[in-house]
Design a protein around this nucleic acid. Sequence first.
DNA 1: AAGTCGGGGAC
DNA 2: GTCCCAGACTT
Length: 358
Amino acid sequence: MNKIPFFTEKLLDWYQPDERPLPWKAIKNPYFIWLSEIILQQTRVQQGLPYYIKFVEQFPTITDLAGASQDEVFKLWEGLGYYSRARNLHAAAQMVRDDYAGVFPSTYPEIRALKGVGEYTAAAIASFAYDLPYAVVDGNVYRVLSRFFGIDTPIDTTAGKKEFRLRADELLDRNNPAVYNQAIMDFGATHCTPKAPKCETCLHQKQCVAFRENRVMNLPVKSKKIKKRSRYFYYLVLNKGTKIYLNKRSEKDIWADLYDFLLIELEQQVEGLFLMDALQKTSHWKTWFGKQKIVIDSISGIYKQTLSHQNINAIFIEIQLDASFFVENKDLIVIERKKIKNFAFPKIITNYLEAKKA
DNA sequence: AAGTCGGGGAC
DNA sequence: GTCCCAGACTT
């Protein structure tokens, strides 16, 4: 029996498993645990919970998920963001089906090798599903450890990641990795929070370096500051009778594998009388429409969406095409408008579609 | 090592 | 407005 560090002893003493009941706790099904961990990457429990419930209901086993179409998986993921998670989720399910006969792998290296599973997620699955001694290091853990030990090494550097990983491994209760990992994340999520941490009632107050030195609000440290660029999207919503044209987005940009409309992007915001003139001058317009005359049905106001690295500004231009009209673009698909609910769109598109309906 | 990938909630 | 959330991947 290893000696348990003081920090760990106090943490386990604090932890009350039933205080924050969640459907992926107190289960050992590795598929459900994996699913919950992917959904919760960079996502608050509150936001991810309804998605977890939907996935479990629609795909009771990982083989069910593997057998779904990509459009089905994306539709269920719609609105949650970071859509590469959905693509990797689907691919990993097929890996488990094809390489492991549908049985979720049970060793850390095998779990870590699944698409979309990094160090954190592999440790979480290994400990929660299989009681293997791997310490999780997520945003909660960075915050708790940086404060308790007064570590100001930036967490978004190679040195910082290594330092916190070593520290986390020392603190892990190797006899009870699942409970320890749950406890430290719950503590960070409910007690040692980013803003307004509950230091006054904290059991660690006397030993917490950050509290003693009045540095709680300065930890953890991040070195990088993100820069945002603004983009200006002009969506041509093509309608022909009861049909509508959709575009499936390619891999290189935001919203890969989601659907949107025919898009012209300009370097700046253009409004009012200048808009159609600016659009018709673009090479895109000339390629798609040639010299055919386009009749504009309506032009929306500016829809805005903030992404982690971009500010998106979008204007939607409704166009009714004549039956004889031809659009030179092989990537477009034409569907019945009433089937639009089967396709997954970025939030800014669903916002527009909702507003149009009303 | 730096950049990129969403969306929402708390302040 | 800013920060950051049960991070991972690409270049």
